[in-house]
Nucleic acid binder design. Sequence first.
DNA 1: GTATCAAATGCAAATGGTTTGCATTTGAGT
DNA 2: ACTCAAATGCAAACCATTTGCATTTGATAC
Lengths: 138, 138
Amino acid sequence: MKTYKRWLQNANLKVTPARLNILYTLDHANGFLTAEDIYNELKPTIEHLSLSTIYRSLEQLEKVHLIESVSLENKKEAQYELAHSKHAHHLICLTCGKVIHIHDCPIHDFAKAVSSQHHFKVTSHTLDLYGYCEACQT
Amino acid sequence: MKTYKRWLQNANLKVTPARLNILYTLDHANGFLTAEDIYNELKPTIEHLSLSTIYRSLEQLEKVHLIESVSLENKKEAQYELAHSKHAHHLICLTCGKVIHIHDCPIHDFAKAVSSQHHFKVTSHTLDLYGYCEACQT
DNA sequence: GTATCAAATGCAAATGGTTTGCATTTGAGT
DNA sequence: ACTCAAATGCAAACCATTTGCATTTGATAC
Ligand SMILES: [Mn+2]
Ligand SMILES: [Mn+2]
Ligand SMILES: [Zn+2]
Ligand SMILES: [Zn+2]
């Protein structure tokens, strides 16, 4: 918990139980979590926890770049993960939701080519690969 | 309109004004459209048009693969476009919403590599590039 | 420690995009 | 024209997320 406390202090956010627990939960998840996932995880251990606190905390944590939100194809709820400094892409298991991070990025050259070809100034991109993780390929 | 009629008939869907108009509208858009975009476009010309008809039509059209829905980063509404048979990716203008289709795909080799490296069976992927189109780069 | 005050929280109500129930209309085949 | 499933309009329901407001709490100053 020491680490999370420092993260919050460095970001000039008050250290509150909700925020510490949200960071801990995202840090120990093996895939993306929704606001409600986090709420359900924490509700039993925090009395009087409100779902709106989760939403407001996620908003703040994202604003200071401690976490990131992702929109997944065919999912309407926002999904969250701990922020990672290195540019990365995702392997997402369609069965168990496990997420593997890939730090290799095949897009930069491609973006450059496409960019000049279509006179389009590319500033960012999203690339997610869907399929089945080792455990789910039986 | 002749074409759209045939599309619907081939898909075993009844030919209705709403569906014809939705196909026409998507066919002539230069970017993705939301259900409400389409509704606002058609409302003036179709008396008693209901937004739920738009939603139900989009659902049907997607089911028979005449159109596709896309989830965009930081947009909560579903976006639609006419289906395209060839595998493609998107250049999306952050200012005007224009979408350019790229039929070049740099991912297949990458997916193969990553696949064997992480024992992950990749079945699909999404790749969208965001930035500014020629007209919006002033 | 105690006082202070903005920031964070709980709770309930409001939102906004999307879906659904139901009575009525319409398209396609006879 | 006749029939019947499918499509539609409208209102109400739904669900994820946001917001208003009264209360509590964390950080800083004494
Ligand atoms: Mn990630
Ligand atoms: Mn497309
Ligand atoms: Zn899995
Ligand atoms: Zn543009």
